[in-house]
């Protein structure tokens, strides 16, 4: 099974560790992983800023890069929503039929990481190495908006984390937006910060040692607010890092 890894621009730039954790999880599960070297971005920052043509150009680039893969996996619900939903339902909705079909195929073979592990690979029994990777402390989980509301990522990461022995304490309003919203976090930073604050309060109430999520943008936003408010203790990880034993 040829699996393309879409690493995402943020992971590539900021936290390669998440990319390698994803790679390890896929390879341990027996996938032949391909990482197209020319990949950059799914186009979402431009798309949500109103730059439609640029985002269409990037979508075509993504399509070409992963043409030969049986599946494509991304450690992000947000980028996955962009490809699975917005490419097809909006950007190429009125494209020529042949191109639209190509994007529909891409959408069908594209999976967010936890969704792929649970629903495609059906990793019901984890390898011993996998199980030993569990995070030693307690965790709480933040549901990122696009993953949750666009492509139904909710139980998949929790299932995986539970099976690897993590002690999950659910926070209040786990499904509430953390305030990231891509360029929103810079354009309307003050509101974004308040939303992050609300999230941090809900995290603190759980007393968990770490907050886990599936989208690096949200994690950076939450971590940034935690640190600014003097919380140097609560750790912030992508679930892939925890599952792969690479939470460092």
């Amino acid at each position: 099974m040829k699996v393309g890894l879409f690493v995402t621009c943020l992971v590539d730039l900021v936290r390669p560790n998440i990319g390698f954790a994803t790679l390890k999880l896929l390879e341990d599960a027996g996938c032949e992983v391909i990482v197209p070297a020319t990949q950059t971005c799914c186009g979402q920052p431009g798309y949500n800023s109103g730059a439609r043509e640029i985002s269409q150009r990037l979508a075509r680039k993504v399509l070409a890069e992963f043409k030969d893969c049986d599946y494509v996996v991304a450690p992000s619900g947000s980028c996955s929503g962009q490809v699975k939903i917005h490419y097809v339902q909006d950007l190429f909705r009125n494209a020529a039929e042949s191109e639209r079909i190509e994007f529909e195929k891409l959408s069908a073979k594209w999976f967010e990481l936890s969704d792929f592990l649970v629903n495609v690979l059906k990793l019901t029994v984890l390898s011993s190495e996998f199980a030993a990777a569990s995070f030693p402390g307690s965790i709480t989980y933040h549901d990122s908006c696009a993953g949750l509301r666009e492509i139904n990522i909710k139980h998949q990461p929790r299932k995986l984390l539970a099976r690897s022995g993590c002690n999950l304490i659910e926070m209040n309003d786990a499904e509430k937006c953390c305030g990231f919203g891509g360029t929103f976090s810079i354009k309307l930073g003050e509101i974004s910060t308040r939303m992050a604050d609300n999230k941090c309060v809900n995290i603190a109430v759980t007393g968990a040692d770490a907050v886990i999520g599936g989208d690096l943008g949200c994690l950076m936003n939450i971590e940034g607010r935690l640190r600014r408010t003097g919380d140097a203790k609560t750790q912030v990880y992508h679930f892939a890092e925890v599952l792969a034993g690479m939470a460092k």
Partner: peptide
């Protein structure tokens, strides 16, 4: 807009 309220990891 970001760093006025948050650190950037």
């Amino acid at each position: 807009g970001w760093t006025s309220g948050r650190d950037m990891p």
